[in-house]
């Protein structure tokens, strides 16, 4: 599994590590780790709707922060469970741009096995870094 929940750095919250060979894959894995906190059976989230998002930040780390927050935002604002279908990160003037296609559907409490709501991405031990074989992130979610 390209992400792993950990119980050692947060008790009331949910912490996970994610790692991947490329930055784009890491963004996808971190998104799935975040959504899995809310929905046990992610495989039941059908790609009924598609949404394009574009985000800009100074660095990759804050871009991931914004990207995960985007998923949390749509869960509340539109009751949408979204997963990344395609993610591209490119350098721009003084920073980075993310363009992503998200697909998913509205929460269906009959089909979706709901877990615990994610309130926010915290800055506790938050880290995204390039390592020898790719990228690695540590994220603590407030639930």
């Amino acid at each position: 599994m390209p992400f792993e929940y950990r119980g050692d750095i947060a008790h009331a919250d949910v912490a996970f590590d994610a790692w991947a060979p490329t930055l784009e894959e890491l963004f996808c894995d971190a998104a799935r780790a975040t959504m899995q906190v809310m929905v046990e059976n992610l495989s039941e989230v059908r790609p009924a709707q598609t949404l394009e998002v574009k985000l800009e930040e100074e660095n990759e780390e804050m871009l991931l922060f914004d990207f995960l927050n985007e998923l949390i935002f749509y869960k509340d604002a539109r009751r949408l469970l979204l997963l990344p279908a395609e993610v591209n990160v490119t350098p721009s003037d003084g920073g980075f741009v993310l363009r992503a296609r998200l697909s998913g559907e509205e929460i269906d409490v009959v089909r979706h096995q709901m877990n615990t709501d994610v309130k926010a991405v915290t800055m506790l031990r938050y880290k995204l870094e390039q390592v020898a074989d790719g990228w690695r992130a540590t994220v603590v979610l407030d639930v």
Binding site: A10, H11, A12, A15
Partner: peptide, 8 residues
């Protein structure tokens, strides 16, 4: 106050 993580 929690004493066990949610994960655990």
């Amino acid at each position: 106050g929690r004493t066990m993580s949610r994960h655990e």
